[in-house]
Amino acid sequence: MSKSDIPLGIDELTHFAERIARLPPADAEWVDALLAEVLRARRHETDLLAMQAASKHAANEHGENLNDQLAQVALDTAEWLRTLWEVGYMGAGSFRSAPRSAFPSIDLDDVRKSSLFARIRQGKHALPFPPPTRNGRPWHDVLDETEATHQVAAEIVRDEDGLALAAIIEGCAEWNVVEETQGNSQFIVQHEGKGPRYRLSLPDSGGAELRREPPALACPLRQQERGGFHSHWLHWQRDDGSTLEVPLRAATWERAVAEAEHWLAMHHPEVYGQVRFVRQDAC
């Protein structure tokens, strides 16, 4: 690169301004105007370079974040498809029983309307068993909302002796009647013998209501602090009276409860949602 191709530094341009003052007045006027224009162009060039550098840095950061987001979407999609295949979540009685030889076709509308995919994208565990359905679609809200009362369309199915056997709730016929608490008006129901139990109220005036029952069981969660960090264990009592200690991958109480509930869903789905966890400090 020749010397004429090398841009002048700001110090050199400033030195020119001092030399212009020694020129004859007729020349100094137009040379000063030319130098002022050069300085404006140089400042504009500097601003453009700074903007380009900032844009490039922001683009790199956005690209890294976008890559992380795309990677998480890919992981969540894999978990969604795995759950569809292994558990069967399509609802309305379809794609529910193994063995399966062909995966169902899935289009964009299925992705947008999938409550399971939305649940996984929110960072929640996919249940190891199909949830109840509402009008043919998985109904996760009824599992997650512990205090809500749901207005439902429901009816009781009885045998020839009048014993309540099952309930059809929001078009789902897979609800079991656990107990009839008030003749023909209140029932304790559970979906396929798994998950929380609910009180189904059928008043004579119509307008059935479904509300989750509070936990009837209690289980200790032990917490121990070491070096400023907490570790947690679930102490589960087996049917034979012995105790199983289950270490939980959790550093906070809230995460420990979530992990304990997930363990119950995996190993004891019949009592999932029916257990209250009691904090105990380890000795």
Rank of each mutant, 00 (worst) to 15 (best):
123 G>T: 10
197 R>K: 13
7 P>H: 11
171 G>S: 06
35 L>A: 02
42 R>I: 09
134 R>L: 08
245 E>W: 04
48 L>I: 14
261 E>L: 04
146 T>M: 10
55 S>F: 14
56 K>G: 09
88 G>R: 07
30 W>R: 09
51 M>L: 15
47 D>G: 05
217 L>D: 10
258 A>G: 08
219 C>F: 00
44 H>F: 06
254 E>N: 09
26 A>R: 13
254 E>A: 13
63 G>Q: 00
199 R>F: 01
181 T>R: 04
9 G>Y: 08
239 D>E: 15
274 Q>T: 04
17 A>I: 10
155 E>V: 03
187 F>R: 05
211 R>I: 06
133 T>N: 11
222 R>L: 12
230 H>V: 02
113 K>R: 15
40 R>L: 13
48 L>G: 05
247 P>M: 05
185 S>K: 13
128 P>V: 07
102 A>L: 03
191 H>E: 10
178 V>T: 03
270 E>Q: 14
279 R>E: 05
107 D>M: 04
181 T>Q: 05
202 L>Q: 01
138 P>E: 03
254 E>Q: 14
18 E>I: 11
205 S>A: 08
216 A>C: 08
80 W>K: 00
278 V>M: 07
47 D>Y: 09
206 G>Y: 08
225 E>W: 02
133 T>K: 02
138 P>Q: 07
279 R>P: 10
75 L>H: 15
257 V>N: 13
212 R>S: 04
110 D>A: 12
262 H>L: 02
96 R>V: 01
169 I>M: 01
98 A>M: 12
31 V>P: 01
185 S>F: 07
74 A>C: 09
281 D>F: 00
281 D>H: 11
172 C>N: 13
63 G>W: 01
133 T>C: 09
145 E>F: 02
203 P>V: 04
99 P>E: 09
131 P>R: 06
271 V>H: 02
110 D>C: 10
222 R>P: 00
36 A>S: 08
158 R>K: 14
40 R>E: 12
200 L>V: 00
88 G>L: 07
108 L>G: 14
244 L>Q: 12
18 E>Y: 08
241 G>C: 00
5 D>R: 11
16 F>C: 13
25 P>Q: 10
154 A>P: 09
139 W>G: 01
276 R>E: 12
274 Q>K: 08
262 H>T: 00
43 R>E: 14
116 L>S: 09
189 V>Q: 02
3 K>V: 07
275 V>R: 04
174 E>I: 05
85 W>I: 01
124 K>S: 02
249 R>F: 08
104 P>R: 04
129 F>V: 03
203 P>S: 00
63 G>F: 06
